[in-house]
Design a protein around this nucleic acid. Structure first.
Length: 548
RNA sequence: GCGGGAGUAGCUCAGUGGUAGAGCACCACGUUGCCAACGUGGAUGUCGCGGGUUCGAACCCCGUCUCCCGCUCCA
């Protein structure tokens, strides 16, 4: 049922020009999508609503409802490719850049450095498969000491009571310490025979590229996996150039790239996607209030633009889901039709990130597991990834207080929001045909702010001066900056239905009476109601309705 | 990455070895004139892509790409 509806949304999206598969004529390309003429308008409207509501319409002299104080909001647009050190300090390089091995027998995939194991032999007589050849016995058990013994018993075919007959050679190590010559002697977890591991392969969740024409490995750079770091590394620039005072937010809209293993569910998980992110910098003492404020405000934003209460939830992460340096994270989630009933997909995450990000770029990559946070060190005791060494603390000249700001991060997916608005808008209802019989009607009930086309202008028939009068109305609306269309093709009812399918909120029809009474009909997409409006007031009327 | 299903006109799909089809959508003209499916005419496909078997392949076989579902992975 749910999937059925999603299929209908996917085919409508293609048929009416919302979304296409990328490079479709060449068979497509997994995880990449193109927006068509309607889709690009919808997505732009989503982004513009966000930018306007968060930045340009923000009043920095008045505390919005629910906010602890008034605050500043500014925007930036930072580059997609950045100094690779940014990703090393942020933690993305280590997190997104793994060597993986596959097991040919169990078809499981492991991180090379997370498989633990120990060299062993067993020449004991009652073993089913004694071996005087050293085997590297591996385990993924939570307790590797126990796990590796259990695995070895299985490999050698020994009863549990003979565990002491296994001869161990050295202590527990990780698989990545083995040379390529030794790897064939490793026994994969849940397997009885050695040699089922593939050679380790580089597994990049970040897209790698080359900067500089020679293209050696030293020139490797990455497409950003998130827009946030562009804001953090510009924290000082923004402070120095824009007279913002803490608390303030810096916003950015832009493309990010992740080499997802399983792109799926239409545009929900794509390899190229667009984010709308705010990093809100505040004093540590008030950070909890600001976290609550942004969480609730961002939730309300989706509601105001039409996502209904039943399909939208705010999910606070449990304590055990949080990084220890975060004192709160909440996801705004939507019940996408491709998900089973009762499941939700993330639209936006609002995270309290403490001072983790600014400190990372000052001091170097922090060990996420350390508490309090300390620098992550390499085997020689040096910083694993060196920070910028620049001072990213903030000096409040009123309170004479110097501190590292805490960060609240509302991070939204523009494509996910666009998809949610599209799914929410999709309805099949009933409307009468010209004989008064009910027929099914497909209609996209977009919030007028989001609708790709704001109004359509029709002459009732294409003669008696109606097309000319209609074109005058059309041009007035265009002059006012509204995205409107004109059509004189086919029966009037058909033209209404065509606009319903792309979610145009209003249709304006010039009829036989217009010439005498100077008025036109404005038809509402959702109620199907029609009211007569003087021609001279049509543009103002549409603008008034757009403002709500 | 693994397993299952699928890919034929813009959309939804029929077609199981012998001339490529339907409905809707689209275009032109006419008619009606405020809620799609009126009349006449028209355009539309290397049947996902590549290879093989065959006198002959949309159909059988192999490979490959993409989509959907379930695992796996991932926030």
């Amino acid at each position: 049922m749910a999937t059925k509806k999603m299929d209908d949304i996917v085919s409508l999206s293609k048929r009416r020009g919302f979304l296409f598969q990328s490079s479709e004529i060449y068979g497509g390309f997994q995880g990449f999508w193109d927006y068509g003429p309607m889709g690009v308008e919808l997505k732009r409207n989503v982004k513009e609503a966000w930018w306007r509501d968060m930045i340009t319409a923000h009043d920095e002299f008045t505390a919005p409802a629910g906010a602890p104080t008034s605050f500043n909001m500014v925007g930036v647009e930072t580059s997609i490719i950045m100094n690779p050190q940014v990703w090393k300090c942020s933690g993305h390089y280590d997190l997104f850049h793994d060597m993986m091995v596959d097991c040919k027998a169990t078809k499981k995939r492991y991180r090379f450095d997370q498989v633990r194991g120990r060299w062993a032999t067993c020449t004991y007589g009652s073993a089913d498969k004694p071996s005087d050849e050293k085997l590297y016995i591996t385990t993924m058990a939570e307790d590797p000491e126990e796990g590796v013994v259990a695995a070895a018993l299985g490999v050698f075919g020994l009863k549990k009571k003979y565990a002491d007959k296994i001869e161990w050679h050295g202590g527990l190590t990780t698989l990545d310490t083995l040379s390529s010559d030794d790897l064939p002697n490793a026994v994969a977890p849940d397997v009885q025979e050695p040699g089922t591991f593939t050679a380790p392969r580089e597994f990049n969740l970040m897209f790698k590229t080359i900067v500089g024409a020679l293209g050696t490995d030293d020139d490797a750079a990455f497409l950003r996996p998130e827009t946030a770091q562009g804001i953090f590394v510009n924290f000082k620039n923004v402070c120095d150039s824009s007279r913002v005072k803490i608390p303030f937010g810096v916003a950015q809209i832009g493309k990010s790239f992740r080499n997802e293993i399983t792109p799926r569910n239409f545009t929900f998980r794509s390899r190229e996607f667009e984010q709308m992110e705010i990093e809100f910098f505040c004093h540590p003492d008030s950070s909890q209030e600001w976290y609550s404020y942004w969480r609730d405000r961002r939730m309300a934003w989706y509601k105001d633009l039409g996502l209904s209460g039943d399909n939208l939830i705010l999910r606070e992460h449990h304590q055990d889901e949080l990084s220890h340096y975060s004192t709160g994270t909440a996801d705004v989630e939507y019940a996408f039709p491709f998900l089973p009933a009762g499941e939700y997909g993330e639209l936006e995450g609002v995270a309290h990130r403490g001072d983790f990000d600014l400190r990372s770029h000052m001091e170097g990559k922090l060990d996420e597991k350390s508490n309090p946070l300390t620098l992550q060190l390499d085997a020689d005791g040096n910083p694993k990834h060196k920070g910028s060494g620049k001072d990213l603390t903030y000096f409040d000249d009123q309170t004479r207080d110097r501190f590292t700001p805490h960060v609240i991060e509302p991070s939204a997916g523009a494509d996910r929001a666009t998809l949610a608005f599209l799914c929410e808008a999709y309805h099949v209802d009933e409307a009468p045909d010209d004989k008064g019989e009910m027929q099914s009607r497909t209609v996209l009930r977009f919030h007028p702010r989001l609708a790709p086309i704001k109004a359509a202008v029709f002459p009732l028939i294409k003669k008696e001066g109606m097309p000319e009068a209609a074109l005058d109305v059309y041009r007035d609306l265009k002059q006012a900056g509204l995205n409107v269309v004109y059509s004189q093709q086919g029966a009037i009812g058909r033209r209404y239905r065509q606009q319903d399918e792309i979610g145009t909120p209003w249709c304006i029809t010039i009829d036989g009476d217009t010439a005498t009474d100077g008025a036109v009909t404005v038809r509402d997409r959702d109620s199907l109601e029609q009211v007569r409006v003087p021609v001279k007031e049509v543009t103002a009327e549409i603008q008034r309705r757009l403002r709500g």
